[in-house]
């Protein structure tokens, strides 16, 4: 969180975390495509030539004066690939909340678990812990015929009983609900 008292501006950082190719960037692309240009900045995307996120994606949401204060939300994605571990660490620094985007395909469950463990490890390194930090889970790709049952995914990933949402980020289902829910959590914790 970053407060500019002279300009009455408050900035929040939300990081979309999750395994590679899970739909983090797709969430931001959908948000960008749906919002009026007056409330969003440009989508800054650093991709490799095969469309994988290289460093991060970044999108700023900027709302007008609310009770004389101007809220800004900075949305970041982390690179899903493991070898960008240090980049993930840097992007996570100073985050106010995390959206964990899990892939619903059975074959990706190990990646989901490994990435969640990695998130927890990085939290601890920053002297924080997932049981006290605001975060939500988004179960993405719910439209796939082989997607795992929600009960099974909940049992494996949501051991802290955090808010969760089902989503199909490609067509926008659940994308704004997830964002709204994580912002609510930030406000509760602020």
């Amino acid at each position: 969180m970053y407060i500019d008292q002279l300009r009455q501006e408050i900035q929040f950082k939300i990081v979309y975390y999750g395994p590679g190719l899970g739909g983090k960037t797709t969430n931001l692309e959908y948000i960008y495509s749906q919002l009026d240009p007056s409330v969003r900045g440009e989508l800054v995307s650093l991709k490799t030539k095969d469309e994988r996120t290289l460093y991060f994606d970044f999108l700023q949401l900027k709302f007008g004066r609310i009770n004389n204060k101007r809220p800004r939300f900075h949305l970041y994605t982390i690179p899903g690939q493991k070898h960008y571990g240090f980049s993930r660490e840097i992007i996570l620094r100073g985050a106010d909340a995390v959206v964990f985007v899990a892939d619903s395909q059975p074959a990706r469950m190990k990646e989901n678990l490994d990435t969640l463990a990695d998130l927890e490890k990085k939290m601890i390194a920053q002297k924080q812990s997932l049981d006290k930090f605001p975060w939500v889970i988004q179960y993405n790709k719910r439209d796939l015929v082989n997607s795992m049952s929600i009960e099974s995914m909940q049992a494996s990933l949501n051991f802290l009983n955090v808010p969760w949402h089902q989503a199909v980020a490609l067509n926008g289902k659940g994308v704004f609900e997830t964002l709204r829910s994580v912002i609510d959590l930030i406000m509760v914790n602020a």
């Binding site: 900045g41 440009e42 800054v44 460093y55 960008y84």
Partner: peptide, 16 residues
């Protein structure tokens, strides 16, 4: 805003 976010990302990459 974007310039600063990208600079921080660049530093992350070069730190690696």
């Amino acid at each position: 805003i974007a310039m600063t976010a990208l600079a921080a990302g660049t530093f992350a990459a070069t730190a690696e």
